[in-house]
Amino acid sequence: MVLFRRVLGDVLRHQRVERGMTLRQVSAGARVSLGYISEIERGHKEASSELLASLCTAMDVTLSEVIREVSHQVALEEAALAPIPLPIRTEAVSTSAA
C-alpha cells in the first residue's frame, strides 16, 4: 500500500534540498516548527492544506507542482506494487479415440 503522507514528505524534502534550503529556513519562512516539518518530511505526520500551502510559499514552489509530483510518484509506486498477470497456457484437449 502506498502511503500518501510518506510520498508527500519525500517530495517536500526533495524540493527543499533542490533549493538548497535547510529545515530551519523553511521553518522560519512557513512559521512552522522545525520538528513538525521534519515529521512531515519523514511521513510521520499529515500536513493540512493550509500548512502545505505555507511550506510551498516558504520554498517558492507552487502547490500544484508539489501535488503533481506526489501524484506521479504515487502512480509509479502503485504500478510497481500491482500484480503481474501471468499468461495462462491452454492446450487443446484431444477427444478423438485412438
Rank of each mutant, 00 (worst) to 15 (best):
M1P: 14
M1Y: 11
V2Q: 01
R5P: 04
R5V: 05
R6N: 13
R6F: 11
R6C: 10
V7D: 04
V7F: 10
G9S: 04
G9I: 02
G9W: 00
G9R: 00
D10G: 08
D10Q: 09
D10F: 05
D10K: 07
L12D: 02
R13D: 09
R13A: 11
H14G: 09
H14F: 14
Q15S: 14
R16L: 02
R16Y: 01
R16K: 04
V17M: 06
V17K: 08
V17L: 10
E18S: 15
E18H: 14
E18N: 15
E18W: 12
G20D: 05
G20W: 05
T22N: 08
R24E: 13
R24L: 08
Q25G: 06
V26D: 02
S27P: 03
A28F: 06
G29H: 02
G29W: 01
A30Y: 01
V32G: 05
S33E: 14
L34K: 11
L34S: 08
G35W: 00
G35H: 02
S38A: 14
I40V: 15
G43C: 01
H44K: 15
H44A: 14
E46H: 06
A47C: 02
S48G: 08
E50K: 08
E50Q: 10
E50Y: 07
E50N: 10
L51D: 00
L52I: 00
A53T: 12
A53R: 14
S54P: 00
L55I: 15
L55F: 01
L55S: 03
L55M: 11
L55C: 03
C56F: 03
C56P: 01
T57G: 10
M59C: 03
M59W: 03
D60N: 15
L63P: 03
S64M: 13
E65M: 13
E65L: 15
V66A: 00
V66G: 02
I67S: 08
I67Y: 15
R68E: 15
E69Q: 15
E69P: 04
V70L: 04
V70C: 08
H72T: 12
H72Q: 12
H72K: 11
Q73E: 15
Q73D: 15
V74G: 06
A75H: 06
A75W: 05
L76G: 04
L76D: 07
E77S: 07
E77K: 09
E77D: 08
A80V: 01
A80M: 05
A82P: 07
A82H: 11
P83R: 07
P83H: 05
I84K: 13
I84N: 11
I84M: 15
P85I: 03
P85A: 08
L86Y: 12
L86G: 11
L86C: 11
P87Y: 10
I88Y: 05
I88K: 08
R89M: 11
T90V: 13
E91G: 10
A92Y: 08
A92K: 09
A92H: 09
V93A: 12
S94N: 12
T95N: 11
T95S: 14
A97K: 10
A98Q: 11
